[in-house]
């Protein structure tokens, strides 16, 4: 690779945080190396988090829920039998990301922090997200861009894990120069209207150390589905994650999160307000699906995403009802 940088194995999390202030944290590297090869990132220093075994644990404590270390690989999540049984949305999302080779290397924390796949951002365009003046997708090739939440920049967030974790109301443990903080994943991502040059609220030197997933109420069911243009090794055109409680044939609580529709993993307010109390019969399912993305403002080429998302929501609800 053409770039020069130093590669440091920190001895402790504190040392990693200290060093990361003037460099990039580096875990699987599947996204960062691509950004470096595409001349988008130019870190002078890579702080190798793989040197910290404490970030690799998968733990479950009764009553407290799951703690997933940020360095657990996507394949480890996909193949974890406990997750497959009790948190299927997590293992399904992990198993549907990227390819087997990338899932062996890519980590949970890295998946949450990956940068967008917009071809203008990845390509040789001085776009708004790279500090330029224009979003080229707005009037350009925007088939895969967002239908809601875009404001000047029309990326979609590419993480599958984030969509599943948003439905499960996960929290992120973040460690940095100011100590530790716990942040709901719903507060982690940044809309372009707030800052079009970053995707997350992570500050320099801050590291996601683990993801906390609350124990789901009895009777909960979770599922993640992803529509891709080919059935493997592709990013989501639209994804839907649901973590719902169902009692007597009606939804009693829970969330549905959408991927591929917005610059951040998306919790549609009207959709989620329609869930509780609605029966999982044909009428109820239609009503819920129709409440999704009512405020969408598609670009020239991506209006299909609204229909696709609503139909996928129907499919998810039918599978949970069945």
């Amino acid at each position: 690779m053409n770039q020069q940088f130093e590669y440091i194995n920190p001895q402790s999390l504190d040392e990693a945080v200290k060093l990361a202030g003037q460099g990039s944290v580096y875990a699987g590297g599947t996204d960062l190396l691509g950004l470096m090869k595409n001349d988008i990132a130019h870190p002078q220093r890579l702080v190798n988090l793989k040197a910290l075994p404490e970030l690799k644990a998968v733990e479950r404590q009764k009553g407290k829920g799951l703690r997933l270390g940020a360095l657990v690989t996507l394949n480890e999540l996909a193949e974890n039998e406990m997750l497959q049984k009790d948190f299927p949305a997590i293992s399904q999302a992990a198993g549907s990301a990227a390819s087997p080779q990338l899932r062996n290397v890519g980590t949970l924390g890295g998946n949450l922090c990956q940068r967008p796949r917009c071809w203008y951002f990845r390509g040789d365009f001085d776009c708004l997200r790279k500090g330029g003046a224009t979003c080229f997708a707005m009037d350009g090739e925007n088939k895969y861009h967002c239908v809601v939440g875009g404001d000047g920049c029309y990326i979609v967030h590419p993480s599958d894990m984030a969509v599943a974790l948003l439905a499960l109301e996960a929290k992120l443990e973040i460690y940095g120069p100011g100590g530790q903080r716990l942040l709901p994943i719903s507060h982690f991502y940044v809309l372009p209207e707030d800052d079009p040059t970053v995707e997350t609220v992570l500050q320099p030197g801050e590291i996601i150390t683990s993801v906390i997933v609350p124990e789901q109420p009895v009777g909960s069911r979770s599922v993640f589905v992803k529509f891709r243009e080919r059935s493997a090794w592709d990013f989501a055109v639209v994804s839907v994650a649901a973590a719902l409680q169902v009692q007597n044939g009606a939804i009693s609580g829970g969330k549905i999160a959408l991927g591929g529709v917005a610059p951040v993993p998306w919790l549609d307010k009207k959709l989620n307000n329609t869930l509780a109390g609605t029966a999982l019969d044909e009428n109820g399912i239609n009503k819920i699906a129709a409440s999704a993305l009512t405020d969408a403002e598609p670009l020239e080429q991506n209006g299909y995403k609204v229909i696709l998302a609503r139909n996928m929501i129907k499919g998810v609800l039918q599978s949970l009802a069945g």
């Binding site: 590297g29 890579l46 080779q101």
Partner: peptide, 25 residues
């Protein structure tokens, strides 16, 4: 770019794209 798989090798028994990890990894 870690996309096509021609560079696949096993690292500690698992398939990885050797073009898309550093030798130091």
């Amino acid at each position: 770019h870690g996309e096509c798989g021609a560079c696949t090798v096993l690292l500690d028994g698992k398939a990885v794209y050797s073009c898309h990890i550093l030798a130091l990894d």
